[in-house]
Design a binder for these strands. Structure first.
Lengths: 339, 339
DNA sequence: CTGTTAGCGCGTTCAA
DNA sequence: TTGAACGCGCTAACAG
């Protein structure tokens, strides 16, 4: 019940050898006899030795840890990404430090600082909605820690990014609605500071244009895209008796809020209104099994981003060109199982 | 773009003072003139100094970090707990290390080892469904790191626990169904290695008994309570044409799976079947807004567990009696908003 | 108020 | 193959 203070020196002393030999043995160095190695390992177990990663990492100047920063871990998309990150990292013997910014710049800045202070070997990040100031990102970069953005990236040159084609997604979503016969499509848009929402918006406009439909400023409702924003948006649409027959939501959560409200008010989706949402929170499929979504492959994205990051970490010295990987995201039209 | 190697010694040299003074200044010690303090902080900024937490923690023998181990971060209940943990920890200046066992004993063991190696100051844990072997828990205990179980605890004496009254929950749930007129209540049960499922099961049996309803072994379906298990369970009920009019599911996710399947097959809840699920994944409320649940206050639980843990951490030396805190969980009967 | 000295626990030279 | 000595970057004890 006493705090463990067993060090390699204690093991060394008990065996009448030097601590450096113990260190080598515990790291399975080939420069130690198999016999003494066994002896050391047994004694370590006996004394209840637990290596001190702090000391080890300090000395090695490497932590074998990568940090991943997401807005919220409870969001299905980000949880899938983390899953992919952990799987890939694990295969390469890396630990993962999970951090959530809760969409707050202040927390994100704080997190960045902590990650640097703890000398993580690399960072994966999807920036918060509040992130318009990039100071903390630059500090991260200047600290020499490899950095990869995924999904939500910064508009900074020479960065590594793993993204989906948001313009295409926005275009496809809108095109889909138009093909379903919609002529008055509302767009739930997000903070324009984020590239992803900007590009989804651009895709929306481009699809309207290519179909010779008019673009109307007041058909775009901007918000932080939380579930309550979706509710508010839908309420606004009904209250102001807007003439709309389709909705393209820039994310799933806002779409969920809107669906709940519309359902409550007796508006059917997709019959009265067609709807497309980005990403694929499983809940959306439940509220309306026929909801069409632009699927973001979170698991894959996590894996790809981690691979890219590890590549940079492992070739620390040689300069590797930063790159942007665009992943495939496809429109999925689910069939309701009810007939 | 070069790796940051600025240390307090560099700052000291640039200012022709000693590194210990720099250390004191950066830690805002009162034993440094305000003037030199400012000078030092400015120089630190100028050189782009980033403190090395590894070295600091090694020296101080404290990391100001607590680890929290959950089965899955994507589960709403655990995400709320983590939220509560972070809020409370943050107020006391502690960092939080989030780890997920994915319900695997092997991963849980690995995580425990990593936490010890990284010398976290304390650990909060909700054990996995596979955890029947407690070796890693004992190692954690022996390392002298304060430990608090929440929700899913171990059957080990002298431990700290923050739980809800599972027996009462199971009892209330069953009682509720009986009051609704159910006479043939099925129970979706979980691994009996976990105390929580054992106790919910006991509550179920006790409620039947106190209402003089017969307990039938084959009305208990045991599984790992994943969503697919719920689907399977529901399928089994229908296929075997079991005579049931109520379901008490030991968790929400299995209830969700069952609800989806039953809905698809045209069985209505709560008219054809009444149902109660533990915990409150928001999705369950969407599939069936009238679903009754035993609400587990995740946020509160996270806060309380963290407070208990911090109390132990802060009074490291004096022995504090281990304690078990039972939190209130109440049955919530939601009203469908549709009339 | 500041400097000196001595480790925290580990890994890595360099000799032997 | 092993040992001796040093230092990773920082903090804490003790002087002054």
């Amino acid at each position: 019940m006493e705090i463990n203070k067993v060090t390699i020196h204690d093991i060394a002393r008990a065996l009448n050898i030097d601590s450096s030999t113990v260190s080598r043995a515990l790291n399975n160095s080939s420069r130690v006899t198999e016999k003494t190695k066994i002896k050391i390992i047994e004694k370590a177990e006996e004394l209840g030795y637990q290596r001190n990663a702090l000391a080890s990492n300090l000395r090695k100047r490497v932590t074998n840890t990568i940090g991943v920063v997401v807005p919220r871990i409870s969001r299905h998309f980000f949880a899938s990404v983390i899953q992919g990150v952990e799987e890939t990292a694990y295969l390469s013997g890396y630990n993962v430090l999970i951090c959530q910014s809760l969409e707050q710049l202040e927390r994100e800045t704080q997190i960045a600082e902590t990650l640097v202070a703890n000398r993580v070997d690399g960072v994966l990040i999807s920036i918060s909605m509040e992130t318009t100031n990039y100071n903390h990102i630059h500090r991260l970069n200047n600290s020499g820690i490899p950095l990869v953005f995924f999904d939500r990236h910064c508009n900074i040159p020479n960065t590594n990014n793993v993204l989906i084609d948001d313009f295409k997604g926005g275009f496809d979503a809108t095109q889909h609605l138009i093909q379903k016969g919609c002529k008055h499509i509302v767009h739930f848009s997000g903070p324009q500071a984020l590239e992803i929402y900007k590009n989804r918006f651009k895709g929306y406009k481009a699809a309207l244009k290519s179909n010779k439909l008019p673009f109307k400023e007041d058909y775009v409702i901007s918000s932080r895209l939380m579930e309550l924003d979706g509710v508010k948006n839908a309420k606004k649409l009904l209250n102001e008796r807007m003439d709309f027959d389709g909705i393209f939501s820039a994310n799933d959560v806002a779409a969920i809020g809107a669906m709940k409200y519309l359902k409550e008010k007796g508006v059917n989706i997709p019959k009265d209104v067609a709807m497309v949402g980005f990403s694929n929170e499983p809940i959306s499929n439940v509220i309306n099994p026929a909801l069409t979504t632009i699927d973001q492959p979170g698991l894959e994205m996590g894996k790809v981003a981690t691979e890219l990051l590890l590549k940079h970490i492992k070739s620390q010295n040689k300069l590797i060109e930063p790159q942007t990987i665009i992943m495939d995201s496809k429109l999925i039209e689910r069939q309701s199982s009810k007939k």
